[in-house]
Write a protein that binds this DNA or RNA. Structure first.
Lengths: 159, 159
DNA sequence: AGAGGTAGGTTGAAGTATCAAGCATTTGTT
DNA sequence: AACAAATGCTTGATACTTCAACCTACCTCT
C-alpha cells in the first residue's frame, strides 16, 4: 500500500535497517557523551576533527565538510564551543574572508578524556555485533553510498 | 591522537562512512520531501507506518516503536499532522490510557502522491549505488546492528 | 580602476527535538 | 477493597537545527 511494496525484500530490509540505525545509534552515543561530558555527538566530532589535524585548526568550511554539516550549523556550534573554552576563532593570515577554528588546550584535554568512553560505546553498540568480514563489507558498501551522496566527500579522498 | 587511532583501518572506514551517511541521507531525503509536500522524513515515515497497517491506525506507543521515536517526539509530531488533517487521535475501546493514531483519507492521499518521488529518491541516493549482493550484505549487517541497539526492534520481528 | 559575480561566514527568526515533570488509567499486592 | 507501582501519553521549557537574509572580502573581466 505504500512505497515499501515497491522495494524487494532485501532492499526493504536494508532500507529499514539503515533508517533504524540512523535513529538509534546517534541517540545512544548522544546519551553516552551527554552523561560523560555534557556534549552531543556532533560537538564531539567537531573537536575530534580538529584534534586530528596538524596544528589543531581548520577553516570553518573545511571543518564543515569534515563533519558533513552546513556552515550555518557549524557556526552556531563553534560559538557554543567557544563559550565553553574548547575552541577559538582566529583570522586567516592570507584570506580575510576565512575564519579558522582552533582547538584550545582545554578542548584537547576534554576530547582526550572523553575518547575512551566514546570509542567503547562505538564498539559495544556497533562493532562488537559484527565479524571482521562484516566490518570490511560495511566499509566498502558504506563508502559507495557516501560517494553517491557526495562524490568528493573527504572520507573518500584519503584512499 | 583521538579515538580514531584506536580503531583499525576497516573499523574506522565503516564508522566514518556510517556517520556520514547518517548526516547526508536524511538531509537529502528531507529536502526532496520538503519540496514535494512540506514534510520531513520523519513525518513521512509516521504516515507510511500507519498506511501499512490493517485499518490504518496504531496506538501511539506502537507507532513510536515502528518509527524508532520517543513517545514525546511522536506526540508533538502527531499534533502537527493532526493540524494538517492527515491524522486523527481516537480513544482505544478497551484501555482508556491508550491513544490511537488514525490516518485520514487526506493523509492517505498525501502519502500515495508522495510515495513515488520518495522511493525514487531512496533508489537514486542509495540503492542504485549498490549491487544485489551489496544490498543483501547491508540488510544482513544492518539487522545485526539494529539487534544490538534494540534486541526486540520491530523490524526483527517480521523474520 | 571599477563592476559584477563568487566564496566564506554570521546572524536572527522560526520550526523541531529533547528532557523532566506530570496526569490518568490499569495492574498487582495485600 | 485499597494502595502502590507500572503503563500510556501529554505538556512546557530549553536547546538545537534550519532557512533566508545579509555582509565582507576576493576574483575576473573590461
Amino acid at each position: 500500500m505504500t512505497e515499501l511494496r515497491w522495494l524487494n525484500a532485501d532492499e526493504r530490509r536494508a532500507w529499514l535497517a539503515l533508517l533504524s540505525i540512523n535513529t538509534l545509534l546517534p541517540a545512544a552515543l548522544d546519551t553516552q557523551l551527554q552523561a560523560a561530558g555534557k556534549l552531543s555527538l556532533f560537538d564531539y566530532n567537531v573537536l575530534a576533527m580538529l584534534s586530528e589535524t596538524e596544528g589543531r585548526f581548520l577553516p570553518m568550511s573545511e571543518l564543515a565538510a569534515r563533519t558533513s554539516a552546513s556552515l550555518s550549523r557549524l557556526s552556531h556550534v563553534v560559538t557554543k564551543l567557544q563559550k565553553r573554552g574548547w575552541v577559538e576563532r582566529e583570522a586567516h593570515p592570507r584570506d580575510a574572508r576565512v575564519t579558522v577554528a582552533h582547538l584550545t588546550e582545554a578542548g584537547m584535554d576534554t576530547i582526550v578524556s572523553l575518547a575512551p568512553g566514546h570509542v567503547g560505546a562505538v564498539r559495544s553498540l556497533m562493532l562488537d555485533a559484527m565479524t571482521d568480514d562484516d566490518v570490511a563489507d560495511l566499509a566498502r558498501i558504506g563508502e559507495k553510498i557516501v560517494a553517491r551522496l557526495d562524490d568528493d566527500h573527504w572520507i573518500l579522498r584519503e584512499r
